[in-house]
Design a protein around this nucleic acid. Sequence first.
DNA 1: ATTAATTGTTAGTCTTGTCTAAAAATTGCT
DNA 2: AGCAATTTTTAGACAAGACTAACAATTAAT
Lengths: 222, 222
Amino acid sequence: MNFTQSEENYIKAIFALSDGTDLGVSTNLLAERMLTKPSSATDMLKKLKEKNLIEYKKYKGCSLTNEGRDVALQILRKHRLWEVFLVQKLNFGWEEVHEVAEQLEHIRSKKLIDKLDALLDYPKFDPHGEPIPDASGKMEAHKKCVLLSELNAGEHGVVVGVEDGSTDFFTFLKHNNIELGVDVILQEVFNYDKSVRILLKNKEVNISHAIASKILIQTIES
Amino acid sequence: MNFTQSEENYIKAIFALSDGTDLGVSTNLLAERMLTKPSSATDMLKKLKEKNLIEYKKYKGCSLTNEGRDVALQILRKHRLWEVFLVQKLNFGWEEVHEVAEQLEHIRSKKLIDKLDALLDYPKFDPHGEPIPDASGKMEAHKKCVLLSELNAGEHGVVVGVEDGSTDFFTFLKHNNIELGVDVILQEVFNYDKSVRILLKNKEVNISHAIASKILIQTIES
DNA sequence: ATTAATTGTTAGTCTTGTCTAAAAATTGCT
DNA sequence: AGCAATTTTTAGACAAGACTAACAATTAAT
């Protein structure tokens, strides 16, 4: 099945809005998310229902069918893989990628996206820490909190804790400006000793694996 | 200025159809190329004229303005860079890339395309041998005929001649199935000795630089 | 140079996705 | 339960880009 960009965007919005809740998505909420008017949303809901992508009862909101969910996951897969590509291969900053990925996610070619996945070495999370569905739509649980040593190049997050309480450890952190709440971008992992180069407060620092594996990072919600 | 995909496709078609000739492009020819009806083409011509992308007089055909030509060249640049990307980074066959590139060429992001250009190391020609405009719209003369040793990985063409008449040379060619009219894809250039691996008739062969620099290749017209 | 064939344009319709204005259903309040 | 506020849907319109059918301009041929 092929869908228009507009249909895909609505599906994506419904997916995002129904995440968590079991309740349907209201027309007004959807319209607000899509930056359109409720009447436009109603029109689209009728069309999506016709195509069996959503369940929809007048005045009762909508929710994705299994087919609709599959479509949403494939769009998400494309969006997030392109984000990884932009950050890792084209050195975009993680904050610049969304807009371009919004366009790229509509490119229709299964082969393209699967080859891109391979080129990027089958990443499990995008630069914002969001999980990437695999070709069959499965994805890992939402990444909440990881060790700095587990980040991939280009990913970023906020320091939310440590797993070592020694004085020496805190001294190291202090002397390198690493503190709670600081935003960290992992720039490079050196295979040789698994040490990492990170960027924080606009300064670059190299961190040994021993240290990186004691720092807890909260990856940012999309 | 931003243009719709449809406008961009018409501009591209007008550019292609006016290549060579100084005469205007006729409405029927354009419609045929766009797989639409002449009436649709007329409608679009009015719109493009309104936007100063073409000159157009009723019943007299159209031609690109300088501004229109610039737009065409930027689309061409995007199309061809994406083709190089698909072939070199994602291992697409050169015959599969056109359709996907037709979609990718409409992605709007100057930064994206310039970074892609850098990632690909500023290629001058696409996998079909067509020249790639640079960021300012300039491009080299159409590639007509080059030495096998001058091809880049992923490029292909047809053997059209040799620059050595010795028996030993012909013996080598014969024993490696290299003959006039054969389609050759250059797969890899080995920096060590500038030897190349080529694919012809579904077989891979390694060729020394000495040999490759004596074989004339006609790159294929899009 | 007049007519026939071809080419190109206009007029009116259709679809997609949007809008506004008005009407209907639902929810909430007392 | 009944009325008001809110939410949602309907109706009708519009722009983009396409189509068909009909008409107009150009070209070619005798």
